[in-house]
Design a protein around this nucleic acid. Structure first.
Lengths: 107, 107
DNA sequence: ATATGTGCAAACTCTTTGCATGGAG
DNA sequence: CTCCATGCAAAGAGTTTGCACATAT
């Protein structure tokens, strides 16, 4: 919640171990999956590694992936005409937009 | 080349085994990676499994992922104002847009 | 004969699962 | 005491690598 951006399991593990040093990987994977199953978190899949997790109740948004530090950030805007881009006969139910580049800290 | 859409290694393997039945996984992974390294193919990472590969010389485009058959298709249009969506201080060098839904065959 | 690409199987990485344990109620 | 979530370690899935062999030159 305090990160304000999608986290990988490894990032969650590192955050968590600052509070409970004995925290193990299995617990992170298990709980993050459970929270996602119960609708508290949603899974975000971006290039370059495993799933990331973010709070599920965020308003519609997209993601920015920094090529330098590999951290994901939220992008709170969305190009609207997206649904209409699909080929004829294809039904679009959702979409994801990923921007790649360098974040403010890495520039 | 004939597929006209991004393929997973597994799909390449199945295609290839129709021609050379003894074809093994290692050969597919090795060659696809080599072709990508040499710039003939580019890697496309979409949710739900491994990397997909497509011809590198295609014009700018995006992808549609069918939730039913898990096949990826090309989308030949792009919302233009994409670069401007990033937060201040973030440098965007490229982007990917993924549409999710059902392809024409699965509808 | 030499060099190259292949299939096989083992190694790796990331993720998941089984199980015994320890702390909470 | 009973339960249940945890850590650990082993098991899985997908991908990569080492190696001996076959083929082409």
């Amino acid at each position: 919640m305090s990160a304000g951006r999608p986290l990988t399991c490894e990032e969650v593990l590192r955050y968590g171990q600052q509070i409970v040093p004995s925290l193990g990987v299995a617990t992170v994977y298990r709980n993050v999956k459970m929270l996602a199953g119960e609708g508290w978190l949603s899974e975000v899949e971006l290039p370059g590694g495993g799933l990331r997790y973010e709070l599920a109740d965020l308003p519609h948004h997209h993601h920015f992936l920094c090529r330098s530090c590999d951290q994901a950030f939220d992008v709170h805007q969305c190009p609207d005409e997206v649904q209409s881009l699909a080929p004829a006969g294809f039904e679009v139910d959702s979409h994801e937009l990923i921007l790649f580049g360098r974040c403010a800290a890495c520039t």
